[in-house]
Amino acid sequence: MDLGVRPGVLGLLGPNGAGKTTLLRMLATVVPPTRGAVRICGVQVDSQREVRRARRHIGYLPQHFGFYPAFTVYDFVRYSGWLRGLPDSTADTATREAIAFVDLSERSDAKMKSLSGGMIRRCGIASAIVGQPRLVLLDEPTVGLDPAQRLEFRAVIRKLRESGTAVVLSTHLVEDAAAVCDDIVVMAEGRLVWQGDPESLAAAARPGSEGDTPLERGYMSLLAGLEVPA
């Protein structure tokens, strides 16, 4: 795999087991690559020193993230910034800016355990973007969200795109990827098998392919051509 990430939103699509989460964990420096190299902001991450430096520029939201239920929204986001090494002198302002970015300022003092599923996801995004990292990695961020909450999520991602942040979004939902992504990568069995924009993905649809929309049919046509289980 040879993949470059630029400012904007890059979507990762692929069946279960394709390697999307593993790729995100490597980009987040959670696990090292077994071979090859990972470069963050132009610097090859090949030592603990470089890992620590790289993490200051990375915001990472796993699919399942933990939090202390008694933490307030403010506590959780500020703690996430502290983990990334955010200086105390800027931590308060950065925390409040991240919370405002996801429209949770009015719930800043609310306990995490009192939030709805959609609010917890937005709080998770705030924790990933606090301090304005240059690279934001989101793993299946819309899992469990209802249609209205997914629309709210898309609005947040569009704001990130407009800010010039590089975002990598892993999702199973083709329509979510098409709504917010500038570029889409299809993965299968740990390989990058296709890359292009949403319009090109729709154009890849074959006659009679499965799916309810041109995008879904294009995606399923790519997988069918590789004989990869969806």
Score class of each variant (00 low, 15 high):
8 G>W: 03
9 V>S: 03
11 G>F: 00
12 L>K: 01
18 A>V: 02
22 T>R: 00
22 T>E: 10
26 M>S: 06
27 L>R: 09
27 L>K: 07
31 V>L: 14
36 G>I: 05
46 D>Q: 12
48 Q>M: 12
49 R>M: 11
51 V>A: 04
52 R>F: 11
55 R>A: 02
60 Y>E: 00
62 P>T: 11
64 H>N: 13
68 Y>P: 06
70 A>W: 14
72 T>W: 07
79 Y>S: 08
80 S>T: 08
84 R>E: 05
84 R>D: 06
87 P>G: 08
88 D>K: 15
88 D>W: 15
89 S>W: 05
89 S>N: 04
90 T>I: 14
91 A>S: 15
93 T>S: 15
93 T>R: 15
94 A>R: 06
94 A>Q: 02
94 A>T: 01
98 A>Q: 08
100 A>I: 07
100 A>R: 13
103 D>A: 13
104 L>A: 04
105 S>E: 14
105 S>L: 14
106 E>I: 09
107 R>P: 03
113 K>D: 13
115 L>N: 01
116 S>H: 10
118 G>S: 04
118 G>Y: 08
125 I>K: 00
126 A>K: 05
127 S>A: 15
130 V>Y: 03
131 G>F: 02
131 G>Y: 06
140 E>P: 05
142 T>H: 03
146 D>V: 06
150 R>K: 14
153 F>T: 08
155 A>Q: 15
157 I>L: 11
159 K>S: 11
161 R>D: 10
161 R>S: 12
162 E>V: 07
162 E>L: 12
165 T>L: 00
167 V>L: 08
167 V>P: 04
169 L>I: 06
170 S>Y: 03
171 T>N: 04
173 L>M: 07
176 D>H: 07
177 A>T: 06
179 A>V: 05
182 D>A: 10
186 V>H: 04
187 M>A: 07
187 M>Q: 04
189 E>K: 14
194 W>D: 08
195 Q>H: 15
195 Q>A: 13
200 S>A: 15
201 L>I: 12
201 L>V: 12
206 R>P: 00
209 S>V: 06
209 S>Y: 04
212 D>Y: 10
213 T>Q: 09
213 T>Y: 07
219 Y>F: 13
220 M>A: 13
222 L>D: 01
227 E>L: 09
228 V>N: 01
230 A>T: 12
